[in-house]
C-alpha cells in the first residue's frame, strides 16, 4: 500500500509540473480548445497503443503529436478558422477512438479513461512521465526567450528573425505531450482543467512570466497531492477529486487579485 502511494504521488507530481508549465502557454495563447481537441484524440491513442503493441503511453503520445502537427499545419494555411479546424479534428479523433476501441472487442473501462485512474500507474509510466518532464524543462530552458516572445507578439518576433512557425508548433507539440501524460491521472474529459486552473491561480500571484509558471506548477502539485489523498481515502475517481481541489484553490485565489 505504501509503495502504491509513493508511486501515485510521484506520478501525480510529475504530471502536475508538466501541466503547470504548459498550462501557462495554454492560457497565454488562448489554446484551451486546442488542448480539448487533443485530449479527444487520447481515446484513439489508447486504442492504437494497445492494438499495435507499442503500449498505452507511446500510443497516446504519437497520436496526440500527429494531431497537433496536422492542426498546426492547417492553422498556418489561414483557410479555415482555428475554431473550425479544432472542432473538425476533435470529433474525428473522438469518433475514431470509440470505433477502434469497440473493434478491439474488449470491455474498455471508459470511466477510467474519461475521468482518470491514477491507481493504474506502474513503474514504466513513472519513467515515461519523468522522461517527458525532463524533455519539456530542457526545451523551456534552451528556448525560453523565443517561446515567450512568439507568444507575446508573433509579428514582432518574426520581424526580429525568429522562426515563429517552428516555435508555435513546438508549443503545440509540448501541449500534446502534456495531454498524453495527463490522461491516466485526470482522464480525457478533465485534462483541460488541469492545464487551465493552475496557471489561472498562479497568474494572481505573479508579475513575471517565469513566476507565473512556478506558481502554476506549485498549485498543480498541491492539488494533485490533496486530490490523490481524497481519491484514495473515499474511493472516488482521481480526476474529479483533483479538479475540485483546483476549483476551491482558484476561488480563494481570486480574493488576492491585484492589477499586475
Amino acid at each position: 500500500m505504501e509503495d502504491l502511494i509513493y508511486r501515485v504521488i510521484l506520478a501525480g507530481v510529475g504530471v502536475a509540473i508538466i501541466a503547470g508549465i504548459l498550462g501557462c502557454f495554454v492560457i497565454w495563447k488562448r489554446m484551451s480548445y486546442f488542448s480539448e481537441s487533443i485530449s479527444h484524440s487520447a481515446l484513439l491513442g489508447v486504442a492504437l497503443g494497445v492494438a499495435s503493441g507499442f503500449g498505452l503511453q507511446s500510443g497516446l503520445l504519437i497520436t496526440a503529436v500527429i494531431f497537433a502537427v496536422i492542426i498546426a499545419y492547417m492553422q498556418n494555411q489561414d483557410y479555415f478558422s482555428n475554431d473550425a479546424i479544432l472542432g473538425i479534428f476533435s470529433h474525428i479523433a473522438l469518433s475514431l477512438g470509440v470505433i477502434v476501441l469497440s473493434l478491439q472487442g474488449d470491455r474498455t473501462d471508459y470511466f477510467s479513461l474519461l475521468f482518470g485512474d491514477i491507481l493504474s500507474v506502474n513503474q514504466g509510466d513513472i519513467v515515461w512521465i519523468y522522461a517527458i518532464l525532463i524533455s519539456i524543462v530542457s526545451i523551456m530552458i534552451i528556448f525560453w526567450d523565443k517561446l515567450l516572445f512568439v507568444t507575446l507578439n508573433a509579428c514582432l518576433a518574426k520581424a526580429e528573425g525568429i522562426q515563429t512557425f517552428i516555435f508555435q508548433t513546438l508549443i503545440m507539440i509540448m501541449i500534446a505531450m502534456t495531454v498524453s501524460v495527463s490522461v491516466q491521472i485526470v482522464g480525457v474529459l478533465l485534462i483541460t482543467s488541469m492545464l487551465l486552473i493552475p496557471p489561472a491561480i498562479g497568474r494572481v500571484f505573479s508579475d513575471a512570466p517565469l513566476k507565473m509558471m512556478i506558481f502554476s506548477a506549485f498549485f498543480a502539485i498541491l492539488a494533485v497531492i490533496i486530490g490523490v489523498i481524497i481519491s484514495l481515502n473515499y474511493d472516488i475517481a482521481t480526476g474529479p477529486a483533483i479538479v475540485v481541489v483546483l476549483g476551491v484553490l482558484f476561488i480563494f485565489s481570486q480574493l488576492f487579485r491585484q492589477d499586475n
Binding site: I27, D145, K146, N153, L156, A157, E160, I162, R203, N260
Partner: peptide, 24 residues
C-alpha cells in the same frame, strides 16, 4: 531596428517593460 504598426502585446502574459526589453 524596426517598430511595427499596431503593436499589441499579449495582455495575458504578466511581463514588465524591462523584461520585455531584455527578451531575446
Amino acid at each position: 531596428g524596426y517598430t511595427p504598426q499596431n503593436f499589441i502585446p499579449n495582455p495575458f502574459i504578466p511581463i514588465s517593460v524591462i523584461n520585455f526589453l531584455k527578451l531575446d
